[in-house]
Design a protein around this nucleic acid. Structure first.
Lengths: 266, 266
DNA sequence: GCATATGTTCAGAAAATTAGAATATAATTT
DNA sequence: AAATTATATTCTAATTTTCTGAACATATGC
């Protein structure tokens, strides 16, 4: 860069700022006190800019500001470990977390308001979305001790606590429970796993829930029963946009798989 | 600005950063997580830049980073108040302070290493420099009690404590003291006003010093004498470059005069 | 006080940014 | 599902900006 170019640039800057940066009564020109102050702050701005550019080029791995949704049931089991792993393995990435039902979260991914969401998979991903499997949880019965009849008998004897049917798990539960519904079947719909398990623990009824959720709140007076088909599972998946697919998706999925090692599934 | 211009600019930026900022599989394009992170940091950089420009245009009064020197004797009397006033009245200005002898400081102003300095004025400002008067201090005698003879008598009786002769005040003192020097005159040269006054207070000799400095350390066993010509003064001045003269000099001088109101001259 | 080195100003040249037209494509509508 | 519409991108030309090189001005050193 030529001296003349520098000279005109400085002059233009001085006019732009309305401040004399150099004292040209001397050779070489000296910075004025104002120029010194401007220079210091300008250096700060430039440093931040070059740092930003540098981070873009080095942080190729997993960097960015990700907006991720979690269904309530996943937020308890998966989210804490996910955040811990993210902080450790992807310190440059930021995460904005939301919760909601599987359908609401999928809608927000479709609308581009979320980059990804952990939801209960439906049979097929909705159009425009893709599923990346994270965790398969078996649905098991939880009922008070001493009710060792078959399922039909249970439904005739005790009320069934049904997790909110409009949710992802709720639909799975509903599908499986339909054949047992009779005129006298008592169904109680709740939107809290914790409330349901509290009722089961007190002998007020039985329920069908993902094994980890049921086991977590299982009291001494209740037990799990596995006399359901072992194909009756709910799949937690990471749902993302089908086409777009932001760079770093595989890294994101990896963050979830990392925690499966630490945290045994059953 | 046309859409096409924006489009090409974004594309160029993406290539420059090596990062996909937008997901163009949708209309309108969506920011990728990476793009979102870059955008947030870029906004920060731009804010700082516009803030810098804005401050330049508003802070016309006294803003900048000023490097100012103080002679030791002025640093005690003037500097604390100066800094206090500066902080209150020119909060946007920064001040880097140095101390040194009048001559050394004037050299540094000449060399452009200081913007200004508070020094003891010599008869004429050195070439290339200008003086702005700040404060006139009378030189007075300080001697132990009970020595009420004339000056000649004093010089014959007691040692004279002479402030460092290479300094600004030192030269004034030397000029005035020359006529009294005899073969048996005892002169003690010290570079500390405090040490000199301690000796005077202990009856070990007498001295000639600026009134404020002498009065400040005057003990009970010593007194000030004003039997010197009242034209025998030292002028504290703000010395700056003659030609250049940075903008804000008058404001700087005003900061010194502001403190004279609070602090009576003596 | 003159010579030299260095900074500024002024022209034209080079580079960049930008607007407008043509093309491609995501979203919408029928 | 196909056609339509709206919107983004690509391409080229024009504009603006920036840069270089020569002439001129000026501070410093001898």
């Amino acid at each position: 860069m030529t001296l003349s170019a520098v000279s005109t640039q400085i002059k233009t800057l001085e006019e732009e700022l309305g401040v004399l940066l150099f004292d040209r009564a001397h050779r070489p020109p000296r910075l004025t006190p104002q120029g010194r102050a401007v220079c210091a702050r300008a250096e700060d701005v430039l440093e931040r800019e070059t740092a930003l550019v540098a981070e873009c080029q080095t942080g190729g791995a997993l960097a960015g500001r990700f907006r991720i949704g979690f269904v309530a049931t996943a937020s308890i089991l998966l989210l804490p470990d996910f955040l811990a792993h993210a902080q450790a393995e992807a310190p440059k990435a930021q995460f904005d977390i939301e919760t909601g039902t599987s359908i609401a979260l999928e809608d927000r991914v479709t609308a581009g308001q979320l980059d990804a969401a952990v939801v209960t998979a439906s049979q097929f991903p909705p159009p425009g979305l893709r599923y990346d499997p994270l965790l398969r949880e078996r649905l098991v019965l939880a009922c008070p001790e001493g009710h060792d009849r078959d399922l039909d008998g249970l439904f005739r004897t005790l009320p069934f606590f049904h997790f909110q049917p409009q949710s992802g798990i709720g639909k799975l539960i509903a599908d499986h429970v339909v054949p047992y519904q009779m005129a006298d079947t008592r169904m109680i719909y709740l939107d809290s796993v914790e409330a349901i398990m509290e009722c089961v623990n007190r002998g007020l009824g039985f329920t069908l829930l993902p094994e980890p959720d049921a086991r977590r709140r299982l009291g001494a007076t209740a037990c799990l029963r596995f006399d359901t088909p072992d194909t009756l599972t709910r799949d937690l998946v990471l749902v993302t946009s089908d086409r777009s697919g932001f760079s770093g998706l595989s890294g994101l999925v990896a963050l979830f798989h990392a925690e499966r090692r630490d945290q045994p599934t059953g």
